[in-house]
């Protein structure tokens, strides 16, 4: 069970965060199809930050001393760098769709094309290959928690809770969960959140009450970009050994599916992300690993292909779309450029 929960969380948490990124943009009235692109860009900038700091000799002392708290600070800084990069990249989308009233779908597609191209172009020049790795060491010894940090011996057990949620986990995962909760509260329980959401439902009414729709849409998309950028880096850190290769394996689109399946509501999104994360985890590991008798090999014995689990999230989302299209909670004004003069 330990392995399954740990792995599912690793896949589910970036999904959750990026789906919330989609919610922030859509609630403010902007369709953010560029989640995938922003994730790719954020992942690249985060890895580049780690790489550059390591090259400059930063945190080498902390690593040598085994000062894991300092190393976690390093990871947090990299997450912030990725978030800043994602926010900056998303400005391209907000500028086109708010100021120029461009087609948001095409704008998002442009960003999705731009990110891998730009990132691969730069990676090839920086690293002379198609992947940018950490300058020193691997992700696990630098950023993963070990039971030895807490005074346990290598062979000691931390018990079920400790083994599952502390040993061999990335604290970045928990930072993301915390962020998810805080931002969900902000979106639904604060004045700012209410104003932001009103711009996605009826911007004309919001404007008549003195809310600056343009500013709100910029805010929504920028928060969205920051979250997606951070999610991209966390994905690269936890599943790709902190490396960037201009690809997040369609996670941005999967996050879009999570958002739709979660009906644009945070709690449902968390549930949807866990479900889809479980599918990902099962698909990724069921042929090769049977750790702690998690029963994943049993799934293989049933004879269902791993491809089915990979396909499932998209099929489920399509079915959900088909059945809930009438009572969807999608923001009413999403995708429509705001025009002050329109009635």
């Amino acid at each position: 069970m330990t392995f399954l929960i740990r792995q599912t969380l690793i896949y589910a948490v970036p999904l959750m965060l990026v789906a919330l990124a989609g919610v922030f943009a859509e609630r403010s009235g902007i369709i953010n199809l560029a989640l995938e692109g922003i994730m790719i860009f954020g992942a690249f900038m985060g890895v580049l930050f780690v790489n550059a700091v390591q090259e400059a000799g930063g945190f080498a002392g902390a690593k040598a001393d085994g000062n894991w708290l300092a190393l976690q600070g390093f990871a947090l800084l990299a997450m912030l760098a990725a978030a800043a990069a994602g926010a900056a990249f998303s400005l391209l989308l907000s500028f086109a769709s708010v100021n120029l009233r461009a087609d948001q779908t095409i704008g998002g597609t442009a960003l999705n094309l731009m990110a891998p191209a730009l990132v691969l172009f730069l990676i090839r020049i920086i690293a002379n290959q198609n992947v940018l790795n950490m300058a020193k060491g691997d992700a696990a010894p630098w950023f993963m928690l070990r039971k030895t940090y807490f005074g346990y011996g290598r062979t000691d057990s931390m018990g079920f809770w400790g083994e599952t949620f502390v040993n061999q986990t990335y604290p970045a995962t928990y930072v993301c969960i915390l962020l998810f909760i805080v931002l969900s509260v902000i979106l639904y329980k604060t004045r700012f959140g209410l104003r932001l959401r009103s711009c996605g439902e009826n911007p004309q009414a919001a404007d008549s009450l003195g809310i600056n729709v343009y500013k709100m849409r910029y805010a929504g998309t920028t928060i969205s970009g920051a979250l997606a950028g951070m999610g991209g880096f966390v994905y690269a850190l936890t599943t790709a050994n902190c490396s960037a290769n201009g690809d997040v394996a369609g996670f941005g689109f999967l996050a879009l599916a999570v958002m739709i399946f979660g009906n644009w509501k945070p709690l449902n999104i968390a549930g949807a992300a866990l479900l889809f994360g479980l599918f990902k985890c099962v698909a990724a590991s069921y042929t090769s690993i049977d750790i702690n008798g998690d029963g994943i090999c049993m799934l293989e014995a049933i004879g269902v292909s791993a491809h089915v689990y990979r396909m499932m999230p998209y099929v489920i989302t399509l079915v959900v779309l088909a059945f809930t299209s009438k009572k969807s909670r999608a923001p009413k004004a999403e995708g429509i450029p705001y025009d002050k003069g329109q009635r």
Partner: peptide
Amino acid sequence: YITDVVIAAIVYLSAF
């Protein structure tokens, strides 16, 4: 990959 950047820039401009 620079040509993909050019293409993406063109799509971006096409949006408006």
